[in-house]
Design a protein around this nucleic acid. Sequence first.
DNA 1: GATGAGTGATGTAACGATTCAATAACCAGG
DNA 2: CCTGGTTATTGAATCGTTACATCACTCATC
Lengths: 352, 352
Amino acid sequence: MGWRFRWTEAHRGRSRTLSGMARIEDVAALAGVSVGTVSNVLNRPQAVTPKTRARVETAIAELGYLPNESARALVSGRSRTVGLVVPDVTNPFFADLARGAEEVADKHDVVVMLYNSAESPERELRYLGHLETQRVQGILATPVNPGGQAVEALIKRGTPVVLLDRGQASRTVCSVAVDHRAGGRLAATHLTEIGHRRIAFVGGPLSVPGVAERLDGARSAVDHSDILLETIETPSLTVAAGREAATTLVRRPARERPTAVFCANDLLALGVLQTVAREGLRVPEDLAIVGYDDIEFAAAAAVPLTSVRQPREQLGRVAAELLFEEINDPSRHGHRQVVFQPDLVVRTSSAG
Amino acid sequence: MGWRFRWTEAHRGRSRTLSGMARIEDVAALAGVSVGTVSNVLNRPQAVTPKTRARVETAIAELGYLPNESARALVSGRSRTVGLVVPDVTNPFFADLARGAEEVADKHDVVVMLYNSAESPERELRYLGHLETQRVQGILATPVNPGGQAVEALIKRGTPVVLLDRGQASRTVCSVAVDHRAGGRLAATHLTEIGHRRIAFVGGPLSVPGVAERLDGARSAVDHSDILLETIETPSLTVAAGREAATTLVRRPARERPTAVFCANDLLALGVLQTVAREGLRVPEDLAIVGYDDIEFAAAAAVPLTSVRQPREQLGRVAAELLFEEINDPSRHGHRQVVFQPDLVVRTSSAG
DNA sequence: GATGAGTGATGTAACGATTCAATAACCAGG
DNA sequence: CCTGGTTATTGAATCGTTACATCACTCATC
C-alpha cells in the first residue's frame, strides 16, 4: 500500500520545514518506541520501565518537545484553564482578587485566563463566549449585569460558574460576595458617630448592584434621624470620576457642603481626596472621607484613607475553591452562596 | 459495513449524555447539510447560498452551538491567543500596559492571556512553557531575567516574542522599552535644579535591569558635582518596601538625612510618602519625593507625586503591534528595538 | 436536448494527542 | 526448555474541526 508511505513522507516534510515543533511521533521515532509509550511517560510514568523512560526523556529533551495542549484538550474535552472575567483590571481590588484565584488555580495545575470586560456587556458576552469556545473547566465572573441570561446559558450548557462579588441570591450557582449593605451601614454609622450630620454618598452607576447596596446600607444607618444623606451619582468607579464629583462639591459654599463623603470605592475616594486637597480643603477637618475596598493605596495615601475592608484575596481564593469543588465532583457539589462581612478600617481621613 | 453504523451510534450517545455540548455534526444533521457546509457558514459565509446559510444559522442558534477552539487550533496549528507575562499584575503600571496590549489584540480578534510571574524565574518558566504548549501565536513578556535562555529557546522553536520594558540590545528579537537611564537623569537633574544637594535613590532589587539603569542615569546627572547620591536598595518594588525604606530614613537625625528621594517606581514613592507623612515630616519641605512610572495614583496622592512618566498604554500597544506584524508577515518582518523617551511630570511632592 | 461553464454542497484526510484492547517480552518454577 | 502468569509496549480508534478535491446542480448556449 503505497499511500501510507507517501503520507508519512509528506507529513514529516511539512513538520520539519513549516513548524519546527516536535510532535510526539518525532519523540517516539528518536527514542525507538511507539507513541503510546511516549504518552505513558508523560502521563503515567510509573507504567513504563525506567530504562525506556530514560530513553524517551532524553529524546524529549533533545527535541525540546512540548505536548500540544490543543490536541490534549480535544481528546479530554476540557482544557486546563479557567477563566476570570472582571470589570476593571486596573482597579487594584480586582488585581488582588485575581491573585487570590491564581494562587488556588496553581495548586490544581490550572492556569487562569484573565479578561477585562471594562463594564461593557458586549465585551463580557464576547469573552464568555470565547471562554466557552475554549472549553475551559470553569469560569469566575463578576458579571456586568448579574441578572442577565448569559451566565444562565453558560451553566445550562455545562460550564461551572462562580459569581464573584456580584452574586445574586440565586441557588442555581455558587457565589462569593461581601455584604455591601452591611458595609454601607458601617461607613455611615461611623461618620454619624464622629458627629457628621450632613453626608454625601459618591458612587455609581447605581445600576451596579454592589453600589446600590452600599448606598442602601448607608441609608438604613441614617433612617429615622435628622441626618442628611445626599447622593452624587458618578458614571464610573474611577479616580477621574472621583475628581469630577469633588469638583462640584468644592464649588458649593461651605454651609451647603456635606462635612463628610462616603465613596463607593477607594478609587473614587482617592479622586475626591486629591481634588479636595488641591482646592485647599483640609481632610478630615473640612471634609471627612470614607472609601470602600481598602486597596493598598488607601493606606498609602498621604492622608490615609478610612475604608471598608473587603477580604480581597480571600474572595478570589474562596471563589476558586468553590469552582474546583464543582469541577472535580459535580455530583456531590451543592451550590453555596458565601457572604463575607466587611469591616471598617479607620484612618486619618475620618479621624475624629 | 456494519462498523460505521455502530461507531456513529456510540458517538452520538456519548455526546448527548455526557457533554451536552453540540458539535458541528449535530448542527449539520439538524440543518440537513454536511459538516463541510456548516464549516463554510462559519468561516467563509459568502461561499454558501443565503438560503442554506439561514438554515444552518437557525440550527446553530437552536442548539447553542459554539465551535471547539481546541479542534480549530489543532487543525490550524495556532490558537487565537497571545500571551502576556508581567512581573506584577497588582502594579498599575503593568495593568495599564496590559490594557494597551489588549486593545490591539482585540482588533486582530485575538485574546490576551495574562500571567503574573511575580518576579519568580520558576513561575515565569512554567508560564512560558504553558503558553508554548498552548501554541499561542506569540508572547509579550517582561522577563525576570532578560539575559536568560528561556526566551531564546522560545524564539528558536518558532514562537514570536516581543520583550516589554526590559528589552536588551539583542537584535534577535523585537523589544519596546523606555530609556530608563534618561529617566533617572531627568529625575536627578530636576532635584538638583531645585536645590537639593543630598539625594537618596530608593529602589531594587538592582538585579532588575530597569532599576539599575534608573540609578545609573541618576548617577550620571550628579557626576562631577558635590552632590551626594546614596542608594537604599529595596527587596521589591512595592508600597510595603517603600514604607520600610522610609522607616530607616526618618529614624536618622535630620542633618544626616537626604532632602530628597528618587524612587525607582511610584509604588515605592507612595510607601515612602505615607511613612514620611505619618512621622510628621512635610513633603516637599522636609523631604522632596520623585517617583517613576506616573501611574494614576501618583497624581491622586494627597501630596501629588512628581514622577517620571512612561507612556504606559502606548508601550503595550506598540509591543502588541510589533508582535502582530511578526505573526502576520514573518518574512518581511525585521526585528526592531523601540525606545521611548520618558518625561518628567512635576507635581507638589517636589515643588520648589 | 445535449454540452459546458460555473457555482454550491459533500465527503474525508489530517491536525497531535490519549486511551485501551491486543500483543509481546519477561521471568519463575517445574 | 517449555509453560503460565505478569508486566511492558504497541497500534488503532477517537476527539471536533478545517481544507480541499470531488461531485451535483443550474442555466445559458448552440
